[in-house]
Simulated scan of single mutants.
Amino acid sequence: MRRPDNIIDDASKQNWVDLYAPEGLQPYMKLSRLDRPIGTWLLLLPCLWSIALAAPVGAFPNIWFFILFSLGALVMRGAGCTLNDIADRNFDGKVERTKKRPLPSGQITLFQAVFWLVLQCLIGLLILLQFNLFAILLGAMSLFLVAIYPFAKRFTYWPQFFLGLAFNYGALLGWAAVKGDLSPAPIVLYLGGIAWTLGYDTIYAHQDKEDDVLIGVKSTALKFGATTIYWLIAFYLAIFAALLLSGYLAGLTPPFYVLMAGAGAHLAWQARTLDIHNSDLCLIIFKSNKNFGLIVLAAIIAGKFSLPW
């Protein structure tokens, strides 16, 4: 049953969790951000890029791996968000955008949140065990990055960097799952993805900068301030260059570069449109990175095939 007073501020008023999910499950789903799926997309897309990049020439990506990584991104993003809410439970109630989250609003207890965290991690482990040994070991190493991010905002103005380390790990893991090793192409992709996250999450952080000052946490939005646009251009140039270089290293064909022009145009639109003083616009631009990621995915897949002439 829908309770409009429980809808979290940055979730769509028409999100499926508040509209259709059983009321008893809604707090758990909101801990996992199932009412706000954009984060799952941003975690998943580097995985899909990497799987597609590792596909044989003239072949489509491994669909089974697409499915496994999609499920993995869903549960591990949920686990990361649950850990974040546990860590921030004493801050979230003081911030307008987050005060309706399940823990600060009292919809769920700390014990229940920890139980939900453990359950999601176990599901993630079961999914990881479907891959080769190298990918399993590589995936296990990411847990440190997942654990440190929620606390980064307490000691550095660069928590978005730590988010980038965790959120783009799939750029390494996707390739490893297909190939059983690593090479320069996925490493360049990973480094570029970190720059991408620094860009889009700085935009996102501008929604909270006044509250962050009041409660004493840090972000790149606070560090960059009025110079954000220059940093954003630098980060977006870095991800665009990294994508082109990784495509070159993987031997992608001309259709990749043709479609990448569209991805570059989308990044340019974000930079041209950004107004750091307009929270609603910041959220729209942040969410638009899903479209950027899908254009890149289409470009990589197309780059595995030659033009018919």
Rank of each mutant, 00 (worst) to 15 (best):
C121P: 05
I86E: 00
L126M: 14
F240V: 01
G170M: 09
F240S: 13
K304L: 00
A176I: 05
G139Q: 10
I203E: 08
L173R: 07
G180R: 02
G199W: 09
K218H: 11
S70V: 03
T273P: 04
I38V: 15
H277A: 14
Q14A: 15
S12D: 15
F235R: 02
I229W: 01
N84Y: 00
K179M: 15
F115A: 14
G58R: 06
L307M: 12
V118D: 03
G251V: 10
L110K: 11
L232P: 08
I285V: 14
E23I: 13
L19G: 05
P255I: 07
I233Q: 14
I295D: 10
S105F: 01
R3H: 14
D211Y: 06
D5Q: 15
D9H: 13
G264V: 11
F155M: 05
V146A: 15
A226F: 07
A54V: 07
G139E: 06
R272H: 15
L283S: 10
R77D: 02
F235D: 06
T98N: 02
G303S: 05
L294R: 01
A298Y: 11
S12E: 14
A271C: 15
W49L: 04
I215S: 01
L128N: 01
D211N: 04
G251W: 12
P61N: 05
P56I: 02
L43V: 11
G247A: 10
L249G: 06
W175C: 10
L129Y: 05
F240Y: 14
A55S: 13
I63W: 15
F66D: 06
L252H: 09
G193Q: 06
Q160Y: 09
P27V: 02
L122V: 13
V17D: 05
